[in-house]
Amino acid sequence: MKTNIILSGVGGQGILTIAAVLDTAALSDDLFIKQSEVHGMSQRGGAVQSHVRISDQEIFSDLIPEGKADLILSVEPMELLRYMPFLKKDGWLVTDSESFVNIANYPEKNDLFDQIKKHPNHVIVDATEIAKKIGNSKAANMVLLGAASAIIPLSEESLIEAIKKLFQRKSERIIKLNLEAFAEGKKVAEGITDLATHT
């Protein structure tokens, strides 16, 4: 088993929290993990990505080769498309529908969605909206993780345990909020695709 995931977004949007949940869950399942991240200048409102590789065998490269990603999970629709060259033919795209506009020439949102929909395996989730309804838009990343969980080769229990562990230093309320966001994301994805049967 070897799964390659690209997480993408804009610096400060919190993709590393998703990465941390995946890492923690994979390690507790005794799997190998490699996960790259971006620090320094590019973090300042620029495009950022994290390559997450999970396997039951030793992993060599910290970077995913082009055309080898099973999943691109993005907290922003344009940033999802930036990593298209990495996607496997039958790989999955999961993204928040909410744009992060900090540049003058940001494309039309519908054009972005058209482009994403050209690829059959896609899930566009109103993650920020859902998170807001639950109580905090910051939990959008956990909604997305929930939506993508059926494609990720980690058990739901380990992912939930990892979320609990990660937020344990914060309040009970925050743990609950993030677990709820995860569950909502999972539910939404099941409703709009055949994801559940994919695994």
Binding site: M41, M84, P85, Y106, L112
Partner: peptide, 17 residues
């Protein structure tokens, strides 16, 4: 050769907060 990035994607350089 490499698959290209879809042309709709525009650069997002770093910027001051």
């Amino acid at each position: 050769s490499d698959k290209p990035i879809p042309s709709i994607v525009t650069p997002r350089p770093p910027q001051l907060c």
